[in-house]
Nucleic acid binder design. Structure first.
Length: 264
DNA sequence: ATCGGTACCTGCACGC
DNA sequence: TGCGTGCAGGTACCGA
């Protein structure tokens, strides 16, 4: 579910726990806990204050008072919920001075990890798409040899773009998801760069896309899904030319596109 | 060193 | 009603 705009919305809604102390950390499902046993981790976290909560692509990195980082990834169906009741898919419960935070995840693709040093899998990510300068984006694009949709999903290229926003950006840029990166010149790269920036900025302003069950920590839904032009609109008319939107599989992921507006 | 394919999970919508 | 199938915002790992 959550891509950059959804994770950004979640991080913003977590502002109330910044500066608060973790009184208790309980882990109910060890699948989502990466590396390390729950007892030791609880002991490591309890009594410590949250210093800052930051987003890196789709990762949430919480820096702790006295050192260490709590890194959370929401996977496909992960949620962080303030003041909610634990349920069937609650895998971790953090009790703070004045708040309770749950980590829920029905598919269990998400993760919670504690590390003394800045997490390596986050350090390995590419630049933020809303921060990278165009020249750097264009150079990085040239260096890869693959289909553009695959590249956009590759988190070492830019971090935070997922299936929804890749499809939406490619539509706005008029580029076919299966287009080879070598066939994308500077002008088309510019259109793509601008489209990514626009779609992510608009989605953040709308609080993300709520496809099935995404909500922020306060339980609020996003509403960018009403602005989707291709994503999950297979068979519906293109917003620009009325041609039915098509769906193809690119690197095992659904890609939605307009066969007339988007060129290889 | 980069890639593409696969595994990891649950829930839902659909057709029979 | 139940069962099988396909599909869903994700990353990590494997082998070519």
């Amino acid at each position: 579910m959550p891509e950059l705009p959804e994770v950004e919305t979640v991080v913003r809604s977590l502002a109330p726990i910044a500066g608060q102390r973790i009184l208790n950390a309980e882990f109910r499902n060890l699948r989502i806990l990466r590396g390390g046993d729950p007892e030791r981790l609880s002991a490591r976290l309890e009594g410590r204050r949250i210093l800052a909560i930051q987003r890196y692509g789709k990762f949430i990195v919480t820096s702790m008072e006295g050192g260490g980082y709590l890194t959370i990834h929401l996977g496909m169906t992960g949620r962080l919920l303030l003041g909610a009741d634990p349920g069937k898919h609650t895998h971790a419960i953090f009790t703070f001075d004045r708040a309770t935070l749950l980590f829920d995840d029905s598919r269990q693709f998400g993760s919670v990890e504690f590390s003394e040093d800045f997490p390596r899998r986050v350090a390995r990510l590419g630049p933020e798409p809303l921060e990278i300068p165009f020249d750097q984006f264009a150079c990085a694009l040239q260096r890869h040899k693959t289909r553009i949709k695959s590249l956009l999903l590759n988190q070492t290229f830019v971090r935070g773009v997922g299936n929804i926003y890749a499809d939406e950006a490619l539509f706005r840029a008029g580029i076919h998801p299966q287009a080879l990166t070598q066939r994308i010149g500077r002008a088309r790269a510019r259109k793509l760069y601008d489209a990514i920036v626009a779609v992510l900025t608009e989605a953040i302003a709308a609080g993300g896309s709520s496809i099935s069950d995404y909500v922020d920590a306060e339980g609020r839904q996003g509403f960018f899904q009403i602005s989707h032009r291709v994503y999950q609109r297979t068979g519906q008319p293109c917003t620009a030319c009325l041609t039915p939107i098509r769906r193809v599989i690119v690197t095992q992921r659904s890609s939605h596109f307009c066969p007339l507006c988007q060129k290889r």
